[in-house]
Amino acid sequence: MTLQARLDAFKASFESGAPPFNVPRSAIEIMHRATKELRRSGQAERALGMGARAPAFALPNQDGKIISAEDLLASGPLVISFFRGHW
């Protein structure tokens, strides 16, 4: 199953209102409203895109060790996945 198929299946289950999530309809509507507003804001289109120069960074990893883009790029291309969190 592709990633998008899995995301779609999760979304359908989450938004069904049934167990295990038991999310009320009102909560789903609030989340839909927020996503719609964020989409309309056009921010995704304004974010850095193809051809732009990626900012350099140095951030702690899960163990507190500093990882820098510079070091990673010294050995080859870099894939970066920005995500919300563990929740």
Binding site: L3, Q4, L7, D8, F10, K11, T35, L38, R39, S41, Q43, A44, E45, A47, L48, G49, M50, G51, A52, R53, A54, A56, A69, L73, A74, G76, P77, L78, V79, I80, S81, F82, F83, R84
Partner: peptide
Amino acid sequence: LPLPARYVVDRRRQIRGADVNADYTVR
């Protein structure tokens, strides 16, 4: 929060792949 985003950056730090979406259920 950050918008969900996936980037491919080449060794010269140029972005060679970018996917940013306001909807975190579309990746």
